[in-house]
Each structure stands twice: as C-alpha cells, then as structure tokens.
Design a protein around this nucleic acid. Sequence first.
RNA 1: GUCCCCUUCGUCUAGCGGUUAGGACACCGGGUUUUCAUCUCGGCAACAGGGGUUCGAUCCCCCUAGGGGACGCCA
Length: 455
Amino acid sequence: MKTRFAPSPTGHLHIGGARTAIFAWLQAKANNGKFLLRFEDTDKERSKKEYVDSIINSLKWLGIEPDEKPLFQSDRINRHKEIALDLHKKGLAYSCNVSSERLEEVRKIQQQNKQQPRYDGFSRDLNLPHEEGNVLRFKMPLDGITSFEDKILKKISINNKELDDFIILRSDGSPTYNFCAAIDDLDMQITNVIRGDDHLTNTLKQINILKAMNSELPEYAHLPMVLSSSGKRLSKREGALDILEYKKMGYLKEAMVNYLIKLGWSFKEQEIFSESDLIEHFDIKNVNSSAAKFSQELLDFYNNHYLKESNLEELFVYINGNFSLSEKFMRNDKKFEIVDLMREGSKNISNLVDELTFFYEDPDISDELMKNIQIDKSLLDSFKEELKEVDFKDKLLIGVFIDSFLTKNNMKFPLLGKPLRLILTGKSNAPSISDLLYLIGKESCINRIDNYLNS
RNA sequence: GUCCCCUUCGUCUAGCGGUUAGGACACCGGGUUUUCAUCUCGGCAACAGGGGUUCGAUCCCCCUAGGGGACGCCA
C-alpha cells in the first residue's frame, strides 16, 4: 500500500490539512505501507518555498515523515505535457480556442436557465490543430455515469453529463491540477488516495482521465471536512490557525495527533491512543461520514491529559527549551515539583508557564481581589507566627499544622484558606494551601503575609 | 441556481432490524477529616421532520428541511 499527502504550498498547514495528512500517513503505517509527500505547486503565482518549509516542519512536529523524498509537481511538467499531447493525438483530448469572454457569456446564460455552469463543448468536434495560444480539453464521456466505491462515503456516482470537458493544458502550455494529480498518483503508484471530501468532484474527473489512459484506479477515501466551532468552513477568519501556532501555545504533538485522529475516527470506546495504538488499530473504514466541528475544549482535554502523562524530566526540558523559563525559576530547587503540581490543571504550556510566576515573585494583588480578602488580621498574625516554627521539610507536617491551627481556633478551613490563597498567589484559582506553602517556601510565605498585614 | 455529499446528547462519537440508545468532552451535584482547581462518585442530555418496507425501525427505501462541498486557463 502506498498513500500520499498532496498539499499545495500556498499557505501554512492548518487543522484540516494536518488531519488529512495524519489519516493518510496512518493508513500507510497501519498496513505496512509507504507514505509519500507531494507538493502541488503548479500555481506559480501562489506557491512559496516558505510554505513548503512550513508544511514540512509542521508534519515533522506531528511525527510524520514521508518515506521518500518529497516530490514537486512542478518538476514533472514535461511528463504531464507529453501525456496531454499524447491524449490529443489519440483523440481523447481536443484543442480549443474559445475566448474567456465567450466562456463567461455561456456560463451566465446557463445560470439564467437554472443549469449548471459548464463548458458547452463548442470545440469538441472541430478537430482544431493544437497550436500556441489554444487550450487542450479532455473529452469527457457524453453519457453514462461515473461511479466509485469510496472507503468512507460508500458509493459515489454522478451522471457524466454533469462533468464538462475541463482544461488539461492551459494556453501557455502548462498543465492543470486535476490532470497532474491523476498522472502523479499513477506514476507514484499510489494505491490509496485519501483527501478531503471537497475533492469529490475532482475525483470523478480524475477517474475519467485514468480510464482514458486504461489505467487501474487507486482506492479513494474522502474525509469529511473539519468545520469551525460555529459550523462554517475553516478559514483564517473562522479560526484556522497554522498548526505550528498550536505548538507555540504549548500543545503537545501527542495531544494534537490524538485529537485530530479522534475527529472522525473511532475504535470501540477508547479515547486515548499512543502512536503504536493507532498503528495497531487504525482502519479507514471506521471513519465517520459526517463533518465535524473543531472543539477547543476537547483539544484542551487531550493536551491536559498528555501534559499529566508525560515524563516529568522530559517535559521540563521541552518546556524550558521552547518557552524559556525565567532565571529565577530555574534557580528554584523545587522547580520540578512545582511543574509537576501545576501541570495537573493546565490546558497548555504557555498557560502553565504564566501560572508559575507566583512561585518566585511576590504577587501583585489587584484592588478587586484585595476586597475579597476577609480575615481577622490578628488571627492571621498568629497563624504567621506559629508558621515560623513549622518544619517545611515535609509537606505533610504543614498539613498537620493547618489542621491543628483550625481546631485550636475553632474555625472552618475556607475562612483561612481562601484569604491565604489570595495573599500568597494573587489568584483565587491555585493548588491546595499546603502545597502552596510548601512550594513557595517558608520565607516567602511569611514575607507575603507580612506585606498584607502591613498594607 | 445546478450537481454531489452529510444529518444520534451543546460538542466528538458508538450503534450496523428487537438496546433501559453506550462512551468521552463540557456542564451540574455529592464526596475527598472541612478548600477554587485537581482527584473521585453520581446526574443532566440525542436518533431533524414526514411517508413507506417490516411482526418490529436510530439502523433499509423515498420525500422535505437543514448543513457542507463542487461548479476557474486555483489547487
């Protein structure tokens, strides 16, 4: 089995493209096959080297590496031209010199007549010699139906009347996408084509090219689209980010892959999949046939999961390498324990790093929060004095001290805990008090309480 | 507009003619020797509508509605 991912380098890789790549890659890996990468860069205006690099880097981040050197469609123009001309020679394509003005006119009339706008076959039987300035059009069958068995969507068929004689060679002699894609898949011996279902009609056209060449058809699987959370097509405006932006925000690749693969695919009731789980269980036939909306909450859930699951040392090195922790924090001898604690409730790494500040810097307590601190200052003062005597070597002893202090003063925990959390961290959302006291350290804690008492 | 595809809890999904329609996220509530969060236990919540076929339809067929896609000398 051989699969491929064939992006056009006209933009960064976003969620939808990344998902397609993962599916194609997994389909190959799950079947001991090869996964190839092909850049469809026949649009010279919009294709950029910058995007080629960005796409390769994105795939690399996700752990996807092609099994052969990436192929560039633009390197194969001569081959495409040659075949196009050959089709012409065999009478399977024809030269056409209809002006774009007339094409537009025809489309307008068709629309008015509630017909599908399409080329009307004006030059089909003119037998024009192919000369500079003309386009070459493919002769689509005039009747019958084109159909195929999609691995995900099942039977797809269309009346050939709906398909028009599309251009395979432009008037400047350059080959077009649908033609190149069909030829390349053939030459690369791709056995399984996996792409978004926005390619459905392209597939129908490409099948006819392949049929005209008496070639065998690959198997096709069309993935339903990923829509934005509001159900619209993913676009910049609809929140389609460069996949590497997620890396920058502190999403782990394991989380991204797990989320993306679960967006449409399922295996029993399992939610968490390692790479080897995926390779073992992935089967394209278990992909859902309907479109899915992007969900930030679910991505966050997976990210939090992998943040908690990953090896602490490795995670720490990764965080420091990509998010450069502050000097002060790196000098803290409890830094590993702090990260270990703080990853429990973190959605992503940049968020986690932000939450680290109060462990090495006295917090600024906003006036808003200050108002929420309600505690008897003399009580807090005696708490502080007794705290000075507590052994901070052991977290458990701190817990024991808090318990006894509460009992002695006959008070409920929240009465002490809530204001103390604010004083210590400047936040109302933070880990348990004994964890905080222990990890912030005795000296800083006492300092912060003093600061409050003196304010 | 024409053609194609899709339609199960708010979201991601399981189901493949007979199920109390299952799981996960989110949300809500209880518990964790009293804590916002974590953890844990529990709860809420769905077969788009209408016709068939069938002893029986979430599941098969048709229609309607809604959503998405394609309709380029872009890919």
